[in-house]
Amino acid sequence: MRSEVVTWALRRIGERTLNSVERMGFAARFSLAVLAHSPAALRRLQLTLREIYFAGVLSLVIILVSGLFVGMVLALQGYDALTRYGANESLGILVALSLVRELGPVVAGLLFASRAGSAITAEIGLMKTTEQLSAMEMMAVDPLARVVAPRFFGGVVSMPLLAALFSTLGIFGAYLVGVRLIGIDAGAFWGNMQAAVDFRYDIVNGIVKSVVFGIAVSLIAVFEGYNARPTAEGVSSATTRTVVASSLSILALDFVLTVFMFRGIGV
């Protein structure tokens, strides 16, 4: 009967929506709880340092290598496009602005989400599955303070540094391709770049972006891990959700931030 199908569909939609809203409310409360435990995390500096190591240092290889290649490709493609307008001395500007404003924070953020974010989710999810979090709770140690908050801050501190390193390696890669390989004048490359890239406008905004992305990715990662179903599939689906949700958040936040930060474009 048609009406039955319709009511069923409406009820499912209503259920799903209510569930999502509930989940968001829960996520908000969880996030506030994590932030509330920040002083505790800072007191246990050793734990946070350890998490910076696992999130940041171990991501260095993928970030540096990717940055280098992205910069090199950017230089190749950029040179091809700029020569049509006789503007190949602006290659430095093109590469620097693209990296510092957008590619650095965004691509580094995506890589960070897939490498470090998923690892954090899996680790916390596994601790939940093997009852380590319950054991901690029974020993009157708050797992939010001891397990979750240090990982959150490890991510937030690592992200801007990784984004800066990505951009730096990218510019270096572009230098290798543009100046050494293709033969653009080194002075023009660096000089034009320095004239066009503004500290406050471009670099600070890029850093702000990477901090925002770091907060988003770390929060999603610890949330999914902490609330994973304590089974093997539960942890694996939580890990997948972390990567997907982080990536989408980064891209959406990037749009919003770009609109607000770079309103001067074209004005």
Partner: peptide, 22 residues
């Protein structure tokens, strides 16, 4: 390693600010 990471990260930011930016 964390120390090295933080140092080169800040150095990268510095490089970007001074050499790349103005």
């Amino acid at each position: 390693w964390v120390g090295i990471f933080v140092v080169i990260g800040i150095a990268a930011i510095g490089f970007l600010s001074l050499k790349v930016g103005n």
